[in-house]
Every structure is written in C-alpha cells, then in structure tokens.
Computed example of a mutant assay.
Amino acid sequence: MNFRWFFLTGGYSGLFPKAPGTAGTLAALPAGVAILAYFGSQTLFLASLLLTLIALKAINAYEAQSGIHDDKRIVIDEVVGMWLALSIAPGTAFAWPELTVWENGLSVQIILAFLFFRLYDIKKPSIIGRIDREAKGGWGVMGDDILAGFAAGISSALVWQLLLKTPLFS
C-alpha cells in the first residue's frame, strides 16, 4: 500500500467492510472539527478546496491505473464533502469549551451537518445524483459529494435557525 491509497481511502477508513462512505465521513469529523476550532471556518473551507484539487489528480491516476470508476473504498470525496458541510454549518469561530454549550448550537450543527451530508450523499437528490451518474473521472467521484457538502451545510444552518425560532428552544 502506498501513500496515494492511504490518502484516497481517508487513512484506510474506506477499507471498512460495511458502509465505507459512512466510515470515511466519521473519520473526517474529528479532523474537521479540530481545524474548525483552531483555525476557523474559512481555513476549513480552503482546506476542502485544496483536498479537492489533490484528490482529483489522485483519483484520475487511480482510475487510469485500475480501470475502476468510483471505487467504493475511495472516501476522500466524503472527507471533502463533510469538511465543506462543517465549514458552512456553524458560520462562526469557536473554541473547544464552546462545543458543548447548547445555546451556540455548534454540537447540534455538527451532528446535523453529518446527518444531512449522509442523507444527500446516499439519496443523491436532484443535481447531486445527476453529477454522480454523468460526470466522469475525478469529477464524477468528487462532484456529488462537493454538492452534498454544500447542501448539508446550508440545511444544517437553516434547521438550527428554525430551532432557535421555536418557543421550545428559545
């Protein structure tokens, strides 16, 4: 096994026999939350874009070598999608102690971002599914997860705002 395989499988989390996409998404959470806490949402967003560029090249090389398109063991796309969702959902910087404070909604938004991302990544509604079916190469692997990450981040933020407006939580 080489570094490219380690990278593409999200630190080998994609080798998990059951639900490798979910395993890759869960593996992305601690690193994403750490980057969010120490460096902020802009850095996490930019790290997602950098990972995307590196992953596109690595996926294209892997597919050319193996002849396999969208190998289910490749989960770097889930890492990127989850990081995008995390960079959009909270929309504010925070420190570690604030993670468990209900009122700021960070822990709730992280959970919502994860749930929405997995929902959109599995169900592939609308253009997310179209990109998954029709795009080729690295963009075919990465594109649906990039859009699912954006949609999950926005959905998480919207749901949190709705929760804040309900009498039960205000």
Rank of each mutant, 00 (worst) to 15 (best):
A23P: 15
G24K: 05
G24Q: 10
T25F: 02
A27S: 11
A27L: 08
L29I: 15
G32R: 01
G32M: 06
G32F: 01
G32T: 14
V33G: 07
A34F: 13
A34N: 10
A34P: 01
A34Q: 10
L36E: 13
L36P: 15
L36T: 12
F39V: 13
F39M: 09
Q42R: 13
Q42L: 15
Q42C: 04
L44W: 04
L44E: 09
S48N: 08
L49W: 07
L49H: 09
L50F: 13
L50M: 14
L50R: 10
L50A: 15
L51Q: 07
T52P: 00
L53W: 01
L53H: 01
A55D: 07
L56T: 11
K57N: 10
K57F: 03
K57E: 11
K57G: 09
I59D: 03
N60C: 04
A61K: 04
A61H: 08
Y62H: 06
E63N: 00
E63W: 00
A64N: 02
S66T: 12
S66R: 01
G67A: 03
I68M: 00
D70G: 00
R73F: 05
R73Y: 08
R73C: 12
R73A: 12
I76F: 12
D77F: 00
E78I: 09
V80M: 03
M82G: 02
M82D: 09
M82F: 09
W83Q: 08
W83R: 06
W83S: 04
W83P: 04
L84C: 07
A85C: 05
A85H: 05
A85G: 11
L86C: 02
L86G: 03
S87I: 04
I88K: 01
I88E: 09
P90Y: 05
G91H: 06
G91E: 06
T92F: 14
T92Y: 14
F94D: 10
A95H: 11
A95L: 03
W96V: 12
P97G: 06
P97C: 05
P97M: 06
E98I: 03
E98L: 05
L99A: 10
T100P: 15
V101R: 10
W102G: 07
W102K: 09
W102C: 09
E103W: 02
E103Q: 14
E103G: 06
N104K: 08
G105W: 02
G105Y: 02
G105R: 01
L106H: 07
S107T: 05
V108H: 02
Q109M: 14
Q109S: 02
Q109D: 07
Q109N: 03
I111A: 12
L112Y: 05
A113V: 03
L115Q: 10
L115S: 09
F116G: 02
F117Y: 15
R118I: 01
L119F: 15
Y120F: 15
Y120H: 08
D121Q: 07
D121A: 09
D121M: 04
I122R: 01
K123L: 10
K123A: 10
K123Q: 09
K124E: 11
K124L: 01
S126Y: 09
I127K: 06
I127T: 08
R130F: 13
I131T: 08
I131H: 02
R133S: 11
R133D: 13
R133Q: 13
E134Q: 13
A135D: 05
G137I: 00
G137D: 01
G138Y: 00
G138R: 00
G138V: 11
W139P: 00
W139I: 06
